[in-house]
Design a binder for these strands. Sequence first.
DNA 1: CCCTAATAGTTGAATTTGTAACTAACAAGC
DNA 2: GCTTGTTAGTTACAAATTCAACTATTAGGG
Lengths: 144, 144
Amino acid sequence: MADQTDFDIRSFLPYLLNQAAEESSLAFQHHYKQRYGMLRTEWRVLFHLGRYGAMTANAIGARSKMHKTKISRAVAALEKKRYLTRQKVETDRRHELLTLTRAGQAVYADLCEVARDYDAQLLAPFSTEEQALLKRALERLAKL
Amino acid sequence: MADQTDFDIRSFLPYLLNQAAEESSLAFQHHYKQRYGMLRTEWRVLFHLGRYGAMTANAIGARSKMHKTKISRAVAALEKKRYLTRQKVETDRRHELLTLTRAGQAVYADLCEVARDYDAQLLAPFSTEEQALLKRALERLAKL
DNA sequence: CCCTAATAGTTGAATTTGTAACTAACAAGC
DNA sequence: GCTTGTTAGTTACAAATTCAACTATTAGGG
């Protein structure tokens, strides 16, 4: 058995990342859950459409790495809430272009505000250089 | 509506953390899943017991912030695999001391090795200073 | 054209997780 | 020593996620 005393699970990167992700997501979840009855998957789909404009479910999957069934169900839920509409693409009728409704855009704008504040709050303890490094490192680890 | 063009979900910290956590956990999961048929919760419980020695389910919960039902089920599964044993504490019979069996220790030793390598691999692209900063930042975000 | 393969998206069943209610053991106040 | 409250851990049920199979549509030979 190799020497394990110097290896602590609490500094194991995947573990740390999970803890940090869990902690930060949980605190933010309150906003979209309480105010709009949305799930994390729904919030993510909404956010992608709000930020990048109309796109297909498949495109959202490529960007977010969410599984297509998750997206499919989130889209159905958002449609039911009348936050988005679907439209078949005429050139390839397998694709459905998803577009936020006015109501969807309003929710996006509201949550965007909250997200920005929360992000700033999370980053506040770090210097500008540290923030930049942290984000670069995370992007690299996420293989974005 | 506030100006949103400068706010990108892809640099929203909870989102980035989730992506990075997902990516890094997924790659590692292969080892304990494929080789030992364990779930993430089981792996974590095993790792805590391996690293810190016998303790109660409650103590694991305090350290890992896992919910007690998750731990309860993970412990039951690990017991079934004969990787740990339970023992009532005589001074307070509500507590159960969890101890890795020889088999459990062997699995821990094996996975510990893999985890260490994988951790090193994940951190390789970063300088020593960057690594330290990254871990400190994550610990802070995780409120550890 | 027709047959096969590939892609977008959906659905159902099996797993996994979260919530809340539960049992069992202890502790403290009266 | 009985009632009330608290803690460790389990379990039942509901909600969410994953996996695999499915439909519908397009693309590419032959």
